[in-house]
Amino acid sequence: MTSTHLPLRPLGQRALLLTTAALPLTGWTVHAVVLHKRLAATRVDPLTGLLRRDAYTARALRVLRRHGDGTAVVLVDVDHFKSVNDNFGHAAGDAVLAAFGARLSAWAGPHASAGRLGGDEFAVVLPLAAARREERLGQLMRMLCTPVRLEDGRTVLVGASVGAATPDAVGTRDLSALQRAADAAMYDGKHSGRVCLATLAHAAAPSVNGRRAGRPGTHQWGRAA
């Protein structure tokens, strides 16, 4: 049997050229998607879904530049976190951290910078008008202190220590200074069940690497978990 090769019509030739050209483009597209996912993974803490230190800081600076005095810097510690690990196990501790991450993300909203700074320490920088400050921070405390239900049905009672600093109260829009003030305020209100708002006195508190002097781990401030 004799096979007959029909000449390609102009439309078929163009289609062939487009298909051939698309092959390497598709390969590069897949490669770019993989690289993007890897980059995103380095920016996000896998346990809590919050930003790691560098990504948190970069976004926090943008929030401060955009909203100025209408910004709040909020620092959060999980109260008695070691006891959670000791009494319920490390899986329960991870569940508490994941719950705090989800609650902080939900509270802060899409225009904020929410990060895990390390261990059971978190930070949020968000637009927050003075008129709504008390209401919103009270809402945050209630959310964080809601018991965490574990997969095995057990319930963990949790608490949080929260300090907040705002440029109008502290007198600066510098992120490091606001974090120091929020950190000092948080320790003033430790285990009190209320949010402590920073004042000028908190901004002047002695600090090491941006944290209250004497606080454990001052040499590791901002290191993401």
Rank of each mutant, 00 (worst) to 15 (best):
K82W: 12
A203P: 11
L39V: 09
P7Q: 05
H5D: 12
D174M: 05
A164E: 13
L197D: 04
A114L: 03
R62F: 09
R223Y: 06
L197M: 04
K37H: 11
K190Q: 01
V195Y: 02
L11C: 07
F81K: 00
A55N: 03
A131V: 09
D168F: 12
Q13E: 07
Q179I: 06
F88W: 15
L17G: 12
R14V: 14
A160L: 00
L47Q: 12
L50S: 05
V76G: 06
R180W: 00
L61E: 15
V73S: 08
F122Q: 02
V162Y: 02
R154M: 00
A32I: 07
L137K: 05
G189D: 10
P206W: 02
R142D: 12
A184N: 15
T166V: 03
R38Q: 13
V84A: 14
G119H: 11
T20R: 14
L144W: 03
P147L: 01
W221T: 10
H5K: 09
R59F: 12
N85V: 13
D54L: 13
R180E: 02
A102T: 08
R53K: 09
H67Y: 14
L178T: 01
G189E: 08
L17H: 15
K82M: 11
A123C: 08
L61Y: 13
G101P: 10
G109C: 09
R14C: 11
V208I: 12
A213D: 09
V162W: 04
A184C: 15
A224F: 09
A91Y: 13
P167V: 06
G118A: 08
P216G: 12
Y187P: 05
R173V: 15
T155G: 08
L97V: 00
A182L: 00
P167Y: 04
V34S: 08
A123W: 07
V34D: 14
G210E: 00
